[in-house]
């Protein structure tokens, strides 16, 4: 199988300094701030990591919109390559660095904070599924816009409100009762729900699997929507 598109998407995604900060510097830096992970701080490292992954996935997934904006997609489609192949290679390229980052963070957690096997594997699975869902969401979101700037600005607002309503950096208990469940329309809510149940019980529970299932369903929704929209 020809992996040229995958390689170029990967290089193009990581060439952006902001993407490098979000994907390579911020997550390990967060891991080094001990109070975030020991419950000594108001902010939770697990929630902030959700936010970082969400942002990092969006920055990576901007490759498709820049291809469309620069007209590269027209040239790619004139080559003997199917749209499905192009999308699959791109999405895979966006997911790979984020998954490596999640694996690295899990390893750091095991080394620095003595995470047990269940917790480490549970967090790895949860963050990996969230990564895939975030990439799909960013891809579907980018399909809605013609300009990269419009997509970036509006998505910034979505991430800010979504993270707040999902409980990524503000505990849901602090929100008004009417808003406590609104965040469920974002995958981050279900990611946080899975992580919270894992942290509270110290074991994989039904609530954890509900979170994973919801994120997978979100992923399918975004993939179906984004895959149907016209790219050219």
């Amino acid at each position: 199988m020809n992996t040229t598109i995958f390689r170029f998407a990967l290089i193009k995604g990581l060439r952006n300094p902001l993407t490098l900060i979000f994907n390579c510097i911020l997550p390990p830096a967060l891991m080094l701030i001990r109070p975030l992970w020991t419950g000594e701080n108001f902010l939770s490292g697990y929630g902030l990591l959700i936010l970082v992954i969400w942002g990092g996935a969006f920055l990576m997934a901007q490759g498709t919109i820049s291809d469309r904006e620069s007209g590269a997609i027209t040239r790619i489609m004139s080559a003997p390559i199917s749209m499905r192949n192009y999308l699959m290679q791109n999405l895979f390229a966006y997911m790979v660095p984020l998954t490596i980052q999640v694996a690295l963070i899990t390893a750091l957690g095991v080394i620095l904070y003595d995470w047990g096997l269940t917790l480490a594997l549970g967090l790895f699975l949860c963050y990996t599924v969230f990564t895939a869902t975030s990439v799909m969401m960013s891809f579907a979101w980018n399909c809605l816009f013609k300009k990269k700037e419009s997509s970036f600005t509006t998505f910034g607002a979505v991430v800010t409100f979504g993270s707040m309503l999902s409980g990524a950096y503000v505990p849901l208990e602090l929100l008004p009762e009417a808003l406590q469940y609104v965040g469920a329309i974002f995958p981050a809510y279900w990611g946080m729900r899975g992580i919270s149940s894992l942290l509270e019980l110290g074991a994989i529970s039904i609530d954890y699997w509900i979170g994973i299932a919801a994120m997978i369903m979100f992923m399918i929704v975004f993939l179906l929507y984004g895959g149907k929209r016209r790219m050219i």
Partner: peptide, 17 residues
């Protein structure tokens, strides 16, 4: 209710696709 809603959404998108 949320899962039912999500399921209906997935199926609807599947038929659209």
């Amino acid at each position: 209710g949320f899962f039912l809603f999500l399921f209906l959404l997935v199926m609807s998108l599947l038929r659209w696709r």
